[in-house]
């Protein structure tokens, strides 16, 4: 019995390690598929018909969700020899601060307010890149006056709220965030805090449904994003 408990406890450490070092299995992740025969909605960025050497960017790949809702365009930055991705969706809550998970190498990235994310150098053939995307299930805004308001919640999160506590110590402030009334069986895999106008984005792996963010100076309005 003791051994079993010990294994269980070690499992928790392993889970934290895995959560911090690699992407979790997001419950509401959406698989993206290679999009062939695409017609670029942004011809000025392009390179469908060839890659002129003087172009700063060339499109390497486009991926699309089964319902055609998400479009992910992976571009090659010719100047830095790096990749960057642009996530597109009709609703801004879907492409802003969404997790993009690449399968090989298995890594997660967070898009910015424009749906853009720098992938850096990835040693993979474009044909072998596969990815999924996970948008926030709930978004809350904490105003400097202390008022908290939901900005967006998915249907199954309609009763969900968050409890926030601010702890100050001199110039340093820490925000404790705890989701309340989560749907049964839901686990929050990531919490993201966006401080001010995209000045700083902090990504937490919650433990016991809690995340504690040390806020940057002059944080202003805070966006709190929950991912299941």
């Amino acid at each position: 019995m003791d051994k079993m408990m010990k294994n269980l406890r070690n499992q928790k450490i392993l889970e934290l390690c895995a959560g911090l070092t690699g992407p979790p299995d997001f419950k509401n992740s959406i698989r993206l598929f290679h999009h062939y025969n695409q017609v670029s909605p942004f011809p000025h960025l392009v390179g469908f018909t060839g890659l002129p050497s003087y172009e700063a960017y060339a499109e390497k790949l486009a991926l699309i969700s089964a319902d055609n809702g998400y479009l992910l365009r992976i571009l090659h930055d010719n100047l830095n020899d790096t990749l960057e991705a642009h996530l597109l969706h009709a609703e801004e809550q879907k492409y802003q601060y969404a997790f993009l998970v690449l399968d090989e190498p298995r890594r997660e990235f967070l898009t910015d307010a424009h749906g853009r994310v720098k992938l850096g150098k990835i040693k993979a053939e474009s044909s072998s890149i596969s990815a999924s995307v996970c948008s926030p299930s709930a978004i809350f805004r904490l105003n400097p006056g202390g008022t908290l308001e939901p900005v967006y919640v998915e249907e199954n999160f309609r009763n969900c709220n968050i409890q926030v506590e601010l702890f100050r110590s001199g110039a340093q402030a820490t925000l404790k965030v705890k989701p309340l009334n989560l749907p049964d069986g839901t686990e929050i895999k990531r919490m993201v805090l966006v401080a001010g106008d995209e000045e700083e984005t902090l990504i937490a792996v919650p433990q016991k449904d809690l995340a504690m963010f040390e806020l940057p100076a002059n944080a202003g309005t805070l966006g709190i994003y929950l991912y299941e």
Binding site: R9, K12, E200, A204, K208, A211, M212, F213, E214
Partner: peptide, 25 residues
């Protein structure tokens, strides 16, 4: 809270990442 929960809570607050994948704390 089990001691291990407290340990993980304490440690996880050190490993909060920013957008560049760095750990500011």
């Amino acid at each position: 809270y089990e001691p291990r929960d407290i340990a993980l809570l304490t440690i996880s607050s050190l490993f909060i990442r920013n957008q560049d994948g760095r750990f500011p704390v």
